[in-house]
Amino acid sequence: MRITSRKAVLSGLAMAGIAAVLAGCAAAPDATKTTAAASKYLPCMVSDSGGFDDKSFNQLGLEGLQAGAKAIGAKEKHVESNADTDYAPNIDSLVAANCNLIITVGFNLSAASLAAAKANPDIQFAIIDDAADANFDGKVDEPNIKPILFDTAQAAFLAGYASASYSKSGIVGTFGGMQYPTVTIFMDGFADGVDYYNKQKSKSVKVVGWDVASQKGSFTGGFAANDTAKSTAKNLIDQGADVIFPVGGPIFQSAGAAITDSGKDIALLGADADVFNTFPTYDKLYLTSVLKGIKTATQAVVEASAKQAKGTFDNVPYVGNLKNNGVGIAPFHDFASKVDPKLQGELDSIKADIISGKITVKSYLSGN
């Protein structure tokens, strides 16, 4: 379902090399009994500029850090970034605080995280949503940094199928914060799910805001809930979309405001967290959310790292997918009575076929 031009766009990511590294990707590290020494272990975290109260990405990371620290009987430390210029100083502050594990949240922190890992080989690092591969050779650049990644294309495929099924106008839309692979992986999967629905049902539901073939679409230029995000959502509404999927932390909040202002019957999708629970302001709008198991994965990495002896840090990337429950979609909540009664059964079958390999959902993490 993917064409050659997209592979060309992503060639800089060394897809084949990444696939080779991730072919046997670690599942969530096993959480076994905690040793007494773990109580002295200090896991730490640096947010990206979205902050820990983003009701999404950073918040889930912090919850995972806190849950992991509690499980090993330890304290945790976290610092919030307000701008890109805070990343390196914040990491340095945690190095100075004698943190044993420093987890950074988001690909924007990649350069600062890799530099700190190289300068501090005795400290364990992990980074959420980045391959830690600035050399683009398919290998993690430093032995003491562990990527935590999510093949969200698989879950977004399900959400795209559900959105196409629900749409009355025959038009659905998506837009992103910034055009990074960790954002467009959602948008690709979403569009592919719509395409699969069309093929299965002989329909012609249209996706606006993102074109898979050209890898061009609508982006706000950042991850803030602001007027730009609201106007971007409004543009999709003006094109007739009655389901909108914003990808990029709190920008979904601006989309919710745009939908409310429109007075139209438009459904909204969340990304990363189940926004029905984390941001109930627009609970009546949420069709579903595409979920990343950020909290679970982060907790597991904290617990596993605390048990690893010095010099034995496991930096094999964790890749969440449908098979290991690292990604998924949220319940339909208030939309349960509004969707096709057969939809959930269809989604269950599609999920099983993705897991078995009968359906291939392509992404830079799958190597397809």
Rank of each mutant, 00 (worst) to 15 (best):
V21P: 00
L62G: 01
D133M: 02
P317T: 10
K33W: 06
T232W: 02
L65C: 04
G240E: 03
G17F: 04
N98V: 02
A162Y: 05
T232Q: 08
A97D: 13
E76D: 15
D274Q: 10
D334A: 13
D151M: 12
M187L: 15
T104P: 04
L94T: 14
Q124C: 13
G357Q: 14
L343S: 13
F125C: 03
T184H: 13
A69Y: 01
D265N: 15
D272K: 00
A258Q: 03
A23G: 01
C99G: 00
K206A: 06
D314Q: 00
K307C: 10
N98C: 05
M187C: 07
K234Y: 06
P29H: 14
E76Y: 15
I18F: 00
V183Q: 11
A19D: 12
D137P: 04
I171N: 12
A14E: 10
A88C: 02
K203G: 04
S47Q: 10
G217W: 06
T32P: 00
V290E: 14
K55C: 03
G357C: 06
N368T: 12
Q154D: 08
V95G: 13
M187S: 15
M178T: 15
F252H: 14
Y41V: 12
A309L: 09
S5F: 08
D130R: 03
I102V: 09
D192K: 07
I294L: 13
A27W: 06
D227I: 09
D283G: 01
D53I: 09
L22D: 10
S81F: 05
R6D: 06
K201H: 15
K77D: 07
T184W: 12
S218I: 13
K33I: 11
A134V: 12
F175G: 05
T220R: 08
A153Y: 00
L291S: 04
L94G: 09
Y286D: 03
G249P: 01
S113F: 00
K55L: 01
D242M: 05
K216L: 02
G189T: 12
G189E: 12
S202W: 01
E346R: 11
T281Q: 15
A112L: 00
D265M: 05
L365V: 14
G17V: 03
T288A: 14
L22H: 03
I128W: 01
G345F: 06
K362D: 07
G326F: 09
G222V: 00
P147H: 01
A119S: 14
F150W: 06
A162Q: 10
K77P: 08
K295N: 07
F107E: 11
Y180K: 12
K139N: 11
A309Q: 07
L236T: 08
P43D: 02
V275L: 13
K7Q: 13
I3R: 12
G64S: 08
S113P: 02
A31S: 15
F223G: 02
K203Y: 02
G209P: 10
E142P: 05
P43L: 06
I18K: 15
Q215E: 15
I18P: 01
F52T: 11
A304V: 05
D30V: 14
L109N: 06
D314G: 05
A132E: 09
L347N: 04
